[in-house]
Amino acid sequence: MPVTSKVVIAIIVEAALFVVLLFGAAGTLEWGAGWAWMVLMFGGGGVVTLLLARNDPALLAERMRSPMQPDQPLWDKVFLVVMGVLWCAWLVLMGLDAVRFRWSAMPLWLASVGAALVAVSFWLVARVFLENTFLAPVVKIQTERGHRVISSGPYAVVRHPLYAAAAIMIPASALVLGSWWGLAFSVLLLAGLVWRTIMEERELVAHLEGYAQYTGRVRYRLVPFVW
């Protein structure tokens, strides 16, 4: 199947799943914040996809591959399944919280801050993808593509800028959707990102030439001057 067709199908399936989980839990389609978040997520994701299609179709093709691959560590397969379940539970929780039961009351200005942060996170995602052609969705060494250490652009600041962008996007999404419970639950998702960062670095240090030296030059994993 052509990559373009895979991308279109993936977007449609993902959007449908998000609508079912979010608005199904909310019990209504009349949720402005929910639709605003969908526009932000799929608008931002669409822009990044178009940039990849134009500038790095090989990476786009790589990211359309199965999330379960033969050369992928078992721990990463388990991680992706667990994170997928947590992500779905998170969306359901926010629909229940913000709309159906109205447990949370969040001021509008916080939702605006969240929307701005989601936009910033997608800008960073785009920068990262355009900088690193080896940014596969699974943990593996891509010897067939000449995998090498990338240390320019965002990678000169932190070693895992894509995870840093996700660490902004996740809590910001809870703000857009007006869910304090979603914001609290996002701590679990962030903990998962931190764990994968540590595990992925072990693989890279052990198997990617030059990565150990790179960690000596760029000290911080996710947050400059912090960690």
Rank of each mutant, 00 (worst) to 15 (best):
V8A: 15
A10D: 13
A10H: 09
F18L: 12
V20Q: 01
F23G: 10
T28K: 08
G34C: 01
G34N: 08
A36T: 13
F42D: 13
G43W: 01
G45N: 04
G46Q: 11
T49F: 00
L50M: 12
D56A: 05
D56K: 01
A58C: 08
M68S: 11
Q72N: 09
W75V: 10
V85A: 00
C88D: 15
L91W: 15
M94D: 02
G95Q: 02
L96Q: 13
R100D: 03
S104T: 04
M106W: 13
A111R: 15
V118K: 00
V118D: 08
W123V: 15
V125P: 00
R127M: 13
V128C: 03
E131G: 04
N132C: 02
N132K: 00
V138L: 06
K140Q: 14
T143W: 03
P154T: 07
Y155V: 09
A165K: 09
A166M: 02
I168Q: 13
A172I: 12
L177W: 12
W181G: 01
G182N: 02
L183Y: 15
A184D: 02
V187N: 02
A191D: 10
G210L: 14
G210Y: 15
Y211A: 00
Q213T: 12
R219D: 05
V223H: 00
W227H: 10
W227S: 11
